Amino acid sequence: MYKVLVIEDDNMVGEMSTMYLSEEGYSVKRAESGSHGLQMIEQFAPDLVILDIMLPDISGIDLCLELRKRSCVPILAVSMKTEVLDRVDALVAGADDYLCKPFSMRELTARVAALIRRSHMSILNPMPGPAQANIDLDDGEPVKLDYERRAIYVNSSYVDTTYSEFEIMKLFVANKEKVFSRDELINALRGIDSFINDRSIDVHIANLRKKIEQDPKEPKLIKTVWGIGYKYMGNS
């Protein structure tokens, strides 16, 4: 039985979420404050955290950052805030998904199931080394993609990426040195991320650079083409 921790101070939302998730077969506990939520992370060891961004004692964004220091548990951020920048802030802080209030319990349970499924697929099917994955290491390219396992290797070392980050890298690697506008990247991700926009693309690119570049501040692999978008250079 998968365990879900709901960190939510709104009684109605918290109780409804707990009830519906319990009916779906999850073991659910609820914390009504950020400080209580941090304690519950250690005690309960959840498979997923539903985190309200607006808590009475701690900023949900700060709590998300703190949770990320302690755990790789999937985080579903929920909030009354509907602005794109609020969602981007949550994703940058480490949230895996974002759900705007008010939301249907059906959508909540679907998002929870998808995040847990994705997380546990990675655990049950750990990424093999590049030799096992039949990746050609002799062409001098620093970044390798294993399409079957949706794995990325940088200089033969596996790096963890989100679904959207992998899709962007797949597009880049297949079209080396092609300049992609932000609109083209947005269109490529539609259906994967329903909230995708220019700012989200920039966040994904920044996160990819942190994972694949030797110096993310001086990127050599993913270049910015000012006024247009981005291109992947590879071992040019």
Rank of each mutant, 00 (worst) to 15 (best):
G34I: 07
P130D: 00
M233C: 15
Y2M: 10
H36P: 07
R117I: 14
I53A: 02
V13Y: 00
R117H: 12
D193F: 06
D10K: 13
F172D: 09
Q132G: 02
E107Y: 08
Y147K: 02
I228S: 14
D202W: 01
R190K: 11
S79A: 02
S27G: 10
Y163T: 04
D52Q: 03
K69N: 11
K176T: 10
R149N: 01
G37N: 07
L48Q: 04
I50P: 03
L85A: 14
R118I: 14
I212Q: 03
S156N: 12
Q132R: 09
L145D: 00
A110Q: 05
G234L: 04
R199C: 09
L21Y: 00
N175C: 03
K3M: 01
I53V: 08
G37C: 09
Y26G: 00
E148I: 06
G234R: 00
Y153G: 02
S104Y: 02
L99Y: 00
D52V: 08
G229Y: 09
V73T: 13
S33T: 15
S22H: 07
L145Q: 00
K29Q: 11
E32Q: 15
G60I: 09
M80P: 15
P130L: 01
I196L: 08
K211L: 07
L67W: 05
I61L: 01
D10T: 14
R182L: 11
D10L: 06
P219Y: 02
D138F: 13
S181L: 05
K223Y: 11
S33K: 07
K217H: 06
M169R: 06
K69W: 12
I41G: 00
P102R: 00
G140H: 01
P126V: 05
K101P: 04
P102H: 00
Y20W: 06
V88R: 15
E83A: 15
M12W: 14
S181E: 04
E32N: 12
E165H: 04
R117G: 08
K81D: 10
I116A: 01
I123N: 06
A77H: 07
G94W: 07
A77G: 11
A95P: 14
I135D: 01
G94K: 05
V154I: 06
T162C: 14
M1V: 06
S71Q: 03
L208I: 04
G227I: 03
C72W: 10
K176Y: 06
R106F: 11
I186V: 13
E66S: 14
K144S: 10
N235T: 11
M1T: 13
E167C: 08
G25E: 03
G14V: 07
S35E: 09
K220H: 10
G191S: 03
I212K: 03
H120N: 06
G129Q: 04
V78Y: 01
K178G: 13
A188R: 14
N187I: 08
A93E: 06
V225T: 09
D136H: 04
E167P: 08
N175Q: 04
